[in-house]
């Protein structure tokens, strides 16, 4: 009992037949072969699968592909443009906000949505804002810095230092 759906991913419309039970994350990874979106748990806790659906950060393991019918999805592959990296990507690289890279795509997409609603967040607002995304490697300090950096860049403010600070 497959159902035909049309999902726009990173600006390209894909019309596919899917099982009604297919998860959005599997549509993206398995059916459409975009493997930048990751799976880290089976309880919707880790956020590694976070994508933007019509601009809103969602955990794509918790959405059925059929629910994304007619929607527009942004994955990590859609962040950079012909002009270069998205500010959040630059922020993560410049501030050493990733180690193994597995949580990074989801973390960046959640940060993009956060900055859209709150362009100049405090450290505490960032920490609460990304609390649905787990990172096991970085300890979060530098993720906070990366999001602050991206915010500054997107606002056109002076960029904060990316040098590590030591006591």
């Amino acid at each position: 009992m497959e159902k035909e759906i049309t999902v726009t991913i990173n600006g390209t419309a894909h019309t596919v037949k899917v099982e009604p039970r297919l998860l959005l994350v599997h549509l993206i990874r398995e059916n459409l072969n975009m493997t930048g979106t990751h799976i880290g748990c089976d309880t919707s806790n880790c956020g590694a699968c976070t994508v933007l659906m019509d601009g809103k950060a969602v955990k794509s393991c918790t959405i059925l592909a059929v629910q994304a019918n007619g929607k527009s999805i942004t994955t990590v592959e859609g962040l950079a443009t012909a002009e270069g990296l998205h500010p959040i990507q630059e922020g993560f690289k410049e501030n050493h906000a990733l180690h193994c890279g597995f949580c990074t795509p989801g973390m960046m997409l959640r940060a993009v949505e956060l900055l859209k609603h709150n362009p100049n967040p405090t450290e505490e607002e960032i920490r609460w804002g990304i609390s649905g995304n787990l990172c096991r490697c970085t300890g979060y300090n530098n993720i906070v810095k990366a999001i602050q950096y991206a915010g500054a860049k997107m606002r056109g403010d002076k960029l904060p230092s990316t040098e590590p600070q030591f006591v």
């Binding site: 990751h38 990507q89 690289k93 410049e94 050493h96 193994c100 990074t104």
Partner: peptide, 23 residues
Amino acid sequence: HSLKRKEDARFIQGKGHYVDDIK
């Protein structure tokens, strides 16, 4: 030197290559 990481370019662009990405 606090060199920025060489490996990051692929990870921030969804081009990491983890085992579940192999088909």
